[in-house]
């Protein structure tokens, strides 16, 4: 044994855990805060092999779409302002298991087909510095 570690958790471990938690919260604030912002419109961005192939507004484009890449075909169902992969012939089926997504920032990834379906919020009209009501 080169050196024996402490085997009982102590306050410093708590500190380490707290730092990780803080980091998680900070990331959440930064990454999810944008998604929660009001204003703007939710858009679906479909990328294949790292390149964007299609962009549409889910509320305007309800219905089914198919994407083919690397020999796999994904059937994408657009409904209720969000999307899901209803059926795919990829071996992992992760994309199907992800289910429906409807919130800015969420994504569906099919690794074998290298397809990413991502929800983003456009900046249109949202003004973070704006006020809700003027008084006086």
């Amino acid at each position: 044994m080169r050196w024996s570690p402490k085997l009982r958790p102590n306050g410093w471990d708590g500190l380490a855990a707290a730092i990780v938690l803080l980091l998680a919260a900070a990331c959440a604030g930064m990454l999810w805060g944008r998604g929660a912002a009001t204003g703007g419109e939710l858009e679906v961005v479909v990328s294949i092999d790292g390149g964007e192939v299609e962009r549409f507004v889910p509320t305007d484009s309800a219905g089914e779409k198919t994407y083919t890449s690397r020999g796999y075909t994904l059937h994408v169902l657009v409904r209720d302002g969000g999307v899901e992969v209803s059926q795919a012939d990829c071996p992992t089926q992760d994309c199907v298991h992800t289910g429906w997504i409807g919130r800015a920032g969420e994504s569906i990834v099919c690794l074998p087909a290298r397809v990413i379906i991502q929800l983003v919020r456009t900046d249109g009209g949202s003004d973070p510095g704006g006020v809700d009501v003027v008084i006086g």
Partner: peptide, 18 residues
């Protein structure tokens, strides 16, 4: 993936890592 989409799940993953 050549895409930053997975970043969205980082906070959850950090929580899981606890």
């Amino acid at each position: 993936l050549g895409n930053t989409a997975p970043l969205y799940y980082l906070p959850v993953l950090l929580g899981v890592s606890l």
